[in-house]
């Protein structure tokens, strides 16, 4: 019985949160890695573009809520998502047209692109705060839980409850769908193949008649979809606050680099590696230890390796370790 309780506690406090957080990071990191593979720079505006996508979705959600549109038990935000993606696509295509295209044309160094993306980051930040303000916004509606902790306890008679939030369920399902769709697109469609060719060897791709501007445009649209979905899922799961999206930049970059920049498969693996390490290192293991260990060995403290505020440190340490020992990432990414 104790063993089962321990497993349920583990699932409730570690596995489910880590899987859903990992999915969010993975979707975010896919965007970073695609931009890196095709446009060849690290996009510092990624986190704030996520905030932008989530913001548009929130505004549309509010509008729909005021009209009484609802897809109960699912959150209305899912219905608003396509609008968010459309607006974000328009936004990133505009920034590409106004900002990045010039540097592509003059073949600027990658670091110049990074600088430009910092400028875009400032502007995004300003726009988001200007429109929706810097505070917390709640927009989740519909059923909050697929499984409530109390129901689970009654159902199984265990002492530990297992809560499964709707947002977590949606996140996991969405992540699986998106990954499947993206890989099908990259491997089986003509446009997807031309994207991979462009990422592998630009000159060769140009020689075989691939239109670079088209590849770039498709990439930006896919990235816009990915960041909006990641942003909305994160907002549903936690809450929407512009600054947290900026802070997501570090774990997202870490995921992409750990997996191997430019490698989509790596981005997904990296997202889960980072999420699981963050959650396991900052979780207070006392609860589980109480079930598993004999009374004599019970830990006196919380058995928490690091306080929760150090979760950024976890992504960072993993990042440094990977950079030191395997600079191309777990899956082979581009360049050194």
């Amino acid at each position: 019985m104790d063993f089962l309780n321990a497993i349920v506690a583990l699932a409730n406090f570690v596995l489910i949160p880590a899987i859903s957080y990992g999915s969010q990071l993975a979707i975010g990191a896919l965007g970073v890695t695609l931009i890196y593979g095709i446009l060849r720079f690290s996009n510092f505006a990624h986190g704030d573009s996520m905030a932008f996508g989530a913001m548009v979705t929130i505004l549309v959600t509010w509008w729909m809520q005021s009209l009484g549109v609802s897809i109960h038990p699912l959150p209305t935000a899912l219905l608003a998502l396509p609008f968010g993606i459309a607006a974000t696509s328009l936004m990133v295509l505009t920034t590409d047209r106004v900002v990045y295209r010039f540097y592509r044309r003059v073949k600027a160094k990658p670091i110049v692109f990074v600088m430009a993306s910092i400028g875009v980051m400032f502007i995004m930040n300003g726009i988001v705060r200007f429109i929706i303000g810097p505070g917390d916004q709640r927009f989740a509606d519909g059923a909050r839980f697929i499984m409530k902790a109390r129901d689970f306890k009654e159902m199984t008679g265990l002492r530990e409850g297992l809560a499964f939030k709707t947002s977590q369920g949606i996140t996991i399902i969405a992540a699986v769908l998106i990954v499947a769709l993206l890989f099908w697109f990259l491997n089986h469609t003509r446009t997807g193949k031309s994207m991979r060719a462009f990422s592998d060897n630009e000159d060769l791709a140009l020689l075989s008649g691939i239109n670079p501007e088209r590849v770039v445009m498709v990439t930006w649209i896919i990235v816009a979809a990915l960041i909006t979905i990641a942003g909305v899922l994160y907002g549903l799961d936690k809450s929407f606050k512009p600054f947290t999206y900026f802070q997501l930049l570090l774990p997202i970059f870490a995921s992409a680099i750990v997996g191997g920049l430019g490698n989509p498969l790596g981005a997904i693996a990296g997202g889960f590696v980072i999420a699981f390490s963050e959650v396991t290192v900052t979780y207070a293991w006392k609860k589980i230890a109480v079930y598993l260990l004999p009374d004599a060995l019970e830990p006196s403290g919380l058995a928490q390796l690091l306080s929760t505020d150090y979760k950024f440190a976890v992504s960072f340490v993993i990042l440094i370790v990977v950079l030191l020992f395997k600079p191309t990432g777990l899956f082979k990414g581009q360049s050194v």
Binding site: G119, I123, N125, G126, R129, F130
Partner: peptide, 8 residues
Amino acid sequence: HMRLFSMG
């Protein structure tokens, strides 16, 4: 919030 915007 014009600050961040104008700096960008």
